[in-house]
Design a protein around this nucleic acid. Sequence first.
DNA 1: GGCTCCCTAACATGATCATGTGATTGCCGG
DNA 2: CCGGCAATCACATGATCATGTTAGGGAGCC
Lengths: 211, 211
Amino acid sequence: MASVAGIVEDNKKIRDLIQRYLDMQDDLSCPVAVDSVEEMLEYLEEHPGPDVILMDIQLPGMSGIKGIGIIKEKYPDIEIIMLTVYHDSHKIFKALRAGASGYLLKHTSLPEIKESILKLLDGGAPMSPQIARKVITHFQEETPKKDPDSNLTPREHDIVNGLVDGLSYKMIADRYDISIDTVRAHIRNIYKKLHVNSKAEVIAKSLKGEI
Amino acid sequence: MASVAGIVEDNKKIRDLIQRYLDMQDDLSCPVAVDSVEEMLEYLEEHPGPDVILMDIQLPGMSGIKGIGIIKEKYPDIEIIMLTVYHDSHKIFKALRAGASGYLLKHTSLPEIKESILKLLDGGAPMSPQIARKVITHFQEETPKKDPDSNLTPREHDIVNGLVDGLSYKMIADRYDISIDTVRAHIRNIYKKLHVNSKAEVIAKSLKGEI
DNA sequence: GGCTCCCTAACATGATCATGTGATTGCCGG
DNA sequence: CCGGCAATCACATGATCATGTTAGGGAGCC
């Protein structure tokens, strides 16, 4: 059974080229190719949705990234592949977070685009190699919680956890069955070690993984 | 110029098969195929490192994931592709965070493995489709801060940001050029809306993305 | 014109926090 | 055996916070 694709792309030449190529494939059809998210939404109102939509980012009217969110919300079963010249991390991540399932750069060849669509519908996540690399690099940076040499003693960590839980000195004292003055003493030391001087800053540092 | 690959894989049959295949390619050589991270480390002590290492996870002795970290630390220029049967998110993310640049499942065909190596050395990040999908799905889940109906007004968001920055009422008042009593009033309203009653809880909620 | 909501502001009071100073106990390592 | 450090506790004081009450001006809606 042939799968159905759609295109949102404001460059008519590129749009027509891709549409004609996809539509001539045995296992694909491409009945809709428009130049804005708004038009695609109108189309979707009156027609059964395609399985996958190729989407540009820079578009007249609504941006492709905003469009992802709207389409995904109304038609969660439609898969979206970004097809754009943008390869900066910010746009890539925004698109993926918005719900895109693939991200291709515009120099991708027609056969590769076709392969990507099929791969996506088969449960994959087609990405241009450079994009894939940025994504996994982001992953690696996501873990800077190496061990910022907290210097905090075990007990001090307990106290910090209490603060993060939003407890007052008294409640922390009760939780660990110690005196409120002891809590005070620990917190004094924590403040010194972290170079802060309020509960708020300790909580912030902790939740940001800096402890 | 032919690129050099290495293999760490404890199943001798698979190891030999892959090594023979890669070694017979014009653009690749595969001089080293061992069955543990420890052996690979010994090899690296005495030989120029390969460009890329295919690494299993389940290994005698040190795990492949731990091995990534050690190899990457001593030889940061060596790229590592995981080649394993494990497709659970936990192991995938651990491997990527440890420094792997690609992740293939073991049913990958020999030509695909070769393609993956070349793609990696060309700046890509080869992943089996299912893996790629899990990675980008993780990305999407990373943003559950959709909009938990904060109900907070713009000004209230300002105040929350001030709190998150560890500011006192006075400092917030100065930052936005309003009276400290106004700050108090806003915070009162914020507390009501969020059902909390301390700065600490607001900061915690905010940093956890619950606002 | 009423109504609701946001932003602003003031006054007041009891609770909690930040910080200083000091002390005791127990464990670890030179 | 003694010094260093973690953990415990105490007393004290000024700063800051949490909360109640009240209220005027402006934007938007029916």
